[in-house]
Design a protein around this nucleic acid. Structure first.
Lengths: 134, 134
DNA sequence: CTAATTCCTGTAGCGGCTACAGGATCAAGA
DNA sequence: TCTTGATCCTGTAGCCGCTACAGGAATTAG
């Protein structure tokens, strides 16, 4: 059983973030010591690492909550129950990432044009003019 | 001189957002009617449109503030003063957009792998296992 | 003159943290 | 044993860029 600081070190999730996850109901409150300090077991730390990986993949906390709900823990192991559901969440996430990429690509192109015009400019700044003109 | 609702309609910036911009100091407070209602002139509405375009290009409000500061208004016209500065801000923004795109592309690939493994799976969900395994 | 609309200020919420303040408790060294 | 410093606790407020109220005042249309 590890205190929160060590759980943070082992999982890579900041102490304040762990407490935040607990506060918002993403994670169950762990066991407590006699004096009220949080104590994490192996599974608790695994769950933290899982959340961290999911965050790294861009999942919002609400989706991660759903993912965690699809898992069942027993004798120190964590199993998936409904693989199709997991995949569906992953695919939704991927679609959203793709949409954001497309948005940003357009944006990059628009910025590029703005800058390019600006580079070739003589006289007053065309970029600003373009931003301002009606 | 137009009230805020019409300024919103003409600029495409929501009423509450206009007030928010003013509150945070992004925009100067406009003239007021005798009863205290905001009144926007042509330049005020141009500025709103400019902010909207910049937001559309992903500029954070802080950068937009800098961009607005680079402009000088006189007799209903708005001119750039330092084109190089404008371009620098634009280029910084483009770099950040590019960095985000690269991040998201990696992310998309990682998600794709996760989903692909999941699709070929037999037995317990490999995606969830991968997310959980130490 | 009334009723609907618009406007005002002020405050709180979203997501996902981060950063305190102010106190309790614990572990290691002298 | 005492002390020091690290760690922990709760609670609150801040970040960004809005959005959504509440509760009231003013304007406008019929």
């Amino acid at each position: 059983m590890h205190p929160i600081g060590e759980a943070a070190r082992r999982s890579g999730v900041h102490v304040e973030t762990i407490r935040y996850y607990e506060r918002t109901g993403l994670l169950p409150g762990p066991a407590r010591s006699a004096s009220g300090r949080r104590l994490y077991d192996k599974d608790g730390i695994s769950r933290l690492r899982c959340v961290r990986r999911c965050r790294g993949l861009g999942f919002p906390l609400s989706e991660i909550k759903a993912l965690l709900a699809l898992s069942i823990e027993g004798d120190g192991e964590i199993h998936a129950t409904a693989c199709a559901d997991v995949r569906a969440i992953g695919e939704r996430q991927r679609r959203q990432v793709r949409a954001k990429i497309d948005d940003l690509l357009e944006l990059e192109a628009a910025l590029g044009m703005l800058i390019e015009e600006c580079r070739e400019a003589r006289g007053s700044c065309p970029a600003l003019r373009q931003l301002f003109d009606d």
